[in-house]
Nucleic acid binder design. Structure first.
Lengths: 161, 161
DNA sequence: CGCGGGTTTGTTACAGTGTATCACCGCAAC
DNA sequence: GTTGCGGTGATACACTGTAACAAACCCGCG
């Protein structure tokens, strides 16, 4: 499983992310514009979930202002392409750590201490969830599964300070 | 399972909710003030999730304005007491349909058609979730599980219009 | 080359969501 | 009484997200 622990500089894959995004867009005949690249870079370049306004501020410079609305549009695009996830409980965004199988669900593991967000597969959860939904007579279209807690590294650091 | 289908007027339990809330507060030595009662009533009195501003507007009248901040405070209190749930994906609030076992998780089933929100237990889901979290070395403190889709009644109505 | 049509971005304005702060009130305890 | 504390009112503000329109860009086509 990929680690976004936020303790060491976990930006090794920012470059990979950009390469993957470029490939995805090319394959789908979509534009991977400079702005979209920058927004994805900003999201991928930090170990923790970023708010849209944080990203806007980060991309802005004395000579150049990036408005939040532009960031939102880029994020919408990136989410449609599955390159970025939105964390509903934080109003924040993270890069997608890997290619998900189509229809596969994701669990977001949000560390309340270091703020890093990891992804886990829902395979083991899906069975029970499907049964529960069926019993309730409910037909799902989209699920959100977010767990807050302490990641392994933060737990260790608390034990041995 | 309790039905909050929103098709018929599902307010039968609004009165029960208030009675239960009163009992809970008395048992815990907390104040169930008129404002808190009204806010809980407004949340319980509608089949669908209510935004804080909706509630504020609903409680306001020509001679009396209830500010959103007051509603938020009441909602915070009600959530702490487990009488109201927050739906993160909608920024909205629903009454808690039943007494949950301590530590028991909840799944929110959100109908995208009628807007009703039902609750289901996570018992069948919990096993897989625990295993997944353990494998990831993650210690959970709080989980959010929200599923969007079509409830049984809305699905029927779509089939036979 | 210039033109037309789609997409992307910039800009402004605004709607919706949530919090901070301080003042006031009511009530219980001392 | 007055002191303290929790609850409420009121204002202001920060944060999150969207609507609408104009300008820039790109690309194919005549």
């Amino acid at each position: 499983m990929h680690r976004h622990d936020g303790h060491d500089a976990c930006r090794t894959d920012a470059h990979d992310m950009l390469a993957r995004a470029e490939a995805v867009c090319r394959a789908r005949g979509l534009q991977f514009t400079p702005l979209r690249r920058e927004v994805l870079g900003a999201v991928a370049d930090s170990g923790k979930a970023q708010g849209a306004y944080d990203i806007a501020e980060r991309l802005s410079a004395p000579g150049r202002r990036v408005a939040p609305v532009s960031v939102y549009r880029a994020l919408d695009f990136l989410m449609e392409q599955g390159l970025v996830h939105r964390i509903a409980s934080r109003n924040a965004f993270i890069p997608c750590a890997y290619d998900h199988a189509p229809g596969e669900g994701v669990i977001f593991l949000i560390c309340r201490t270091c703020g890093a967000v990891d992804e886990a597969s829902t395979q083991e959860v899906e069975d029970g969830l499907e049964r529960t939904l069926e019993r309730a007579g409910f037909t799902p279209t989209h699920s959100i599964l977010e767990v807050e807690g302490d990641c392994g590294l933060c737990r260790e650091q608390k034990r041995t300070p």
